[in-house]
Amino acid sequence: MDKFTTIQSKIVPLDMEDVDTDQIIPARFLKATTRTGFGENLFRDWRYNEDNSPKADFILNNPAYKEGKILVAAKNFGCGSSREHAAWAIHDYGFKVVISSFFADIFKNNALNNGLLPVQVSQQFLNTIFEKEKANKSNFQLKVDLVNQKVEIVGENLSESFEINDYKKTCMINGYDDIDYLLNMKDKIEAYEKTSKYLNIVG
């Protein structure tokens, strides 16, 4: 997994609520057996016409937003299916951070497991980001600092702190994954199995 500490970048604003994982990556693109290459179909049906020509009014097709490494969306981002392909597609496209006022639970875990940082901010701060970006498009940048758990509007005295549990923070900063951690505690898992009520009855 990639290491993550801090990033300063332009954003890609997607001011839409309830963005579900079927929009992020439709099911017909889930047939690959590897983790790579999903970025080209990110937001497929919002991004392309049926004849595969780009839809001019969709933000990912706007050259002004090409450099953005931070996706900012309205509340309940990543709802619906558990497909990790959604996190893979966003990461594969080049995003390092997704900001929203809240995330669906499974998506949040999937993002964290792939070095894509989900940052939950208050509704008010989210609105400020959207407004300031609208007013100052070409120069607008955010700085996301995982070490200090802070998201900041660059050049303005505006910032907010965000939550992440210490364990996941350490994983993100060092690029560790959960499996390494769990594999090191097999003795504890085996000890648990001996005491499990469920396993003793129906084993």
Binding site: E84, A87, N109, N110, N113, N114, D177, D178, L182
Partner: peptide, 23 residues
């Protein structure tokens, strides 16, 4: 019973355990 992503599928395959925050 709950749904998980593919990295978590691998966790369970490898260790029969899952890292989860209590909802």
């Amino acid at each position: 019973a709950f749904g998980i992503g593919t990295s978590e599928v691998e966790q369970v395959m490898a260790t029969q355990c899952l890292m989860q925050s209590k909802p």
